[in-house]
């Protein structure tokens, strides 16, 4: 049985290379029984998405927000 430490490592390893069949099975067994690692499995994926999407964000590059609700609705309805 995998430890949580090893399971979390395999979860992040998936990003870089394919897991072997044995690793996959061990990981599946572990995450089905461990809430923490099951949550980490999903969050690791979310982090990857965020890391891929971000252009390095600084506090200076705030996206302008539309404060006028009427205008906002109109824009959304036209999209």
């Amino acid at each position: 049985m995998l430890t949580c430490k090893k399971a979390s490592e395999l979860i992040d390893l998936k990003l870089v290379r394919k897991l072997t069949v044995k690793e996959k099975v061990m990981l599946r067994m572990h995450t089905s029984a461990c809430d923490g690692c099951n949550a980490y499995l999903k969050q690791s994926k979310i982090l990857d998405d965020l890391l891929l999407k971000q252009t390095y964000i600084t506090n200076e590059t705030k996206v302008p927000q539309i404060t006028n609700d009427e205008l906002k609705k109109q824009i959304i309805s036209k999209l």
């Binding site: 430890t3 949580c4 949550a39």
Partner: peptide, 14 residues
């Protein structure tokens, strides 16, 4: 010490 998540460190559901 058993390489399990410590109680306060276990990832929560987002």
């Amino acid at each position: 010490e058993n390489n399990k998540w410590k109680a306060g460190e276990r990832p929560q559901i987002w």
